[in-house]
Design a binder for these strands. Structure first.
Length: 375
RNA sequence: GAGCCCGUAGCUCAGUCGGUUAGAGCGCUAGGUUGUGGCCCUGGAGGCCGUGGGUUCAAUUCCCAUCGGGCUCC
């Protein structure tokens, strides 16, 4: 299912292929976030043909609350529902229970929470999130986990990790005894926790590896800890993950974050940053970060970078993009969102080429500095 | 011609029984955003309080005049 191709010599970066029934994913890869069955402001055709996304995310928590499992099942699953025939990964909703719900209750059985839509009470268990993700029909489903905040007491993090482990075992068992609903195979990823404590990270990695998931995620990072600390933990964590399984760093991050974590051996990423920041007027480019709201673009009657393959860059003047964002026009959100995703996927493409040619190690640190500066 | 109301930030307006450094929303401007409730959060700039005079220890506030805008009556 996952095949490694090339290993960078100076770093732990690697290229690989993850096979799903909806197509192959070339890693390292960035996965655009499409919480509610849509990558906000970008339609599926553009996502495939312009952004060149290989896989997108959906969210169990959001899709379970609306439209709900009944609609989803009668639609024939999320692929058919949203008209996307490429791979989909669904997050279990563990993160949302902790970030969105005001009232939640954690018990051995599962997590009870109140819907952010209507206040109604719901229970997510390791088993029923598998069921819901069977109904969604995602190519990759995530286990239910608890994502502790940062900072948190070590005892809390340790107990939380152990609960996640018990849930993981139940989730894996339920996954193995149930079957896909729509004729295509599904994979299940475990999630390593342990906060910023290396001994816990090691323990969690070993435990998750023992359950023989098809892939392993590093969870519980990019929740407010300093960037250097996140790097340190990822670097440590990948040393304790199996070589032959894809590694997915959840919720990360900036282009620089991606480059550094790829150097530490991560294969997959997702993050709201390219799309959310796009809607707030920030674009990421190979020359650095650009705030298109800045007055300096008001009179800039030319494109930002005609050599870059996004519509924003080769077709429209920055003065127009500035105007669209300042006016809160829908087209502004679309163009900046498409641009940022195009850039992220472009960056992953260059990364793969660099790793395969053996020039990643000497290239990525300079690129990190470049993409992180302000234009 | 007479009477009344209004004039405060770029815009729309609060405020003041006379008393620290005159406020808000929007706009402007600069940051932020990391397993997504798009239009959110944080900071900053910006005021001869229409103008001139008077009373007072102290006036955006009270008085007079004047300019500008509006309403009513003859």
């Amino acid at each position: 299912m996952f095949t490694l191709h090339q290993q960078s010599k100076q770093t732990k970066a690697r290229t690989g292929t993850l096979k799903t029934d909806h197509g192959e994913i070339q890693t390292p890869i960035f996965m655009p976030v499409g919480t509610l069955g849509t990558v906000k402001a970008v339609d599926q055709d553009d996502l495939l043909n312009k952004v060149k996304a290989q896989i997108i995310l959906g969210n169990t928590y959001h899709l379970y609350l609306r439209p709900g499992n009944e609609i989803m099942q009668s639609a024939g699953g999320l692929h058919k529902f949203m008209g996307w025939d490429e791979p989909i990964l669904t997050d279990s909703g563990g993160y949302q229970i902790f970030s969105l719900s005001d009232i939640r209750e954690l018990k051995e059985k599962g997590a009870t929470f109140k819907s952010h839509l209507d206040g109604s009470k719901h229970l997510f268990t390791p088993e029923n999130v598998v069921e819901t993700q069977r109904i969604l029909g995602s190519d990759i489903m995530m286990i239910l986990d608890e994502c502790p905040p940062y900072p948190a007491e070590r005892d809390y993090v340790e107990n939380s990790m152990k609960l996640t482990h018990r849930w993981a075992k139940r989730g894996r068992k339920h996954f193995l005894k149930t079957k896909p609903l729509y004729g295509h195979n599904q994979l299940q990823f475990g999630i390593v926790q342990g906060g910023v404590h290396k001994d816990l990270r090691k323990e969690s990695s070993q435990y998750m590896a023992s359950l023989d998931f098809e892939g392993l995620a590093i969870g519980g990072l990019s929740v407010g800890e300093p960037t250097e600390l996140m790097y340190d933990i990822t670097d440590f964590n990948t040393d304790h993950l199996p070589e032959n399984k894809p590694r997915y760093l959840m919720g990360v991050g900036t282009p620089a974050n991606l480059l550094q974590n790829i150097a530490y051996g991560v294969d997959m990423f997702d993050c709201v940053m390219p799309t959310r920041n796009a809607r707030n007027g920030m674009i990421f480019t190979r020359h650095g970060k650009v705030n298109v709201r800045n007055a300096k673009w008001k009179h800039h009657h030319k494109p930002f970078d005609t050599d870059f393959p996004s519509e924003l860059c080769h077709r429209y003047n920055m003065s127009y993009i500035h105007h669209l964002i300042k006016s809160n026009e829908i087209l502004g959100l679309e163009l900046t969102s498409k641009h940022n995703l195009t850039f992220y996927l472009w960056l992953m493409q260059v990364v793969k080429e660099r790793i395969n040619e053996g020039t990643f190690g000497e290239w990525y640190q300079d690129m990190m500095k470049t993409v992180d500066r302000k234009v």
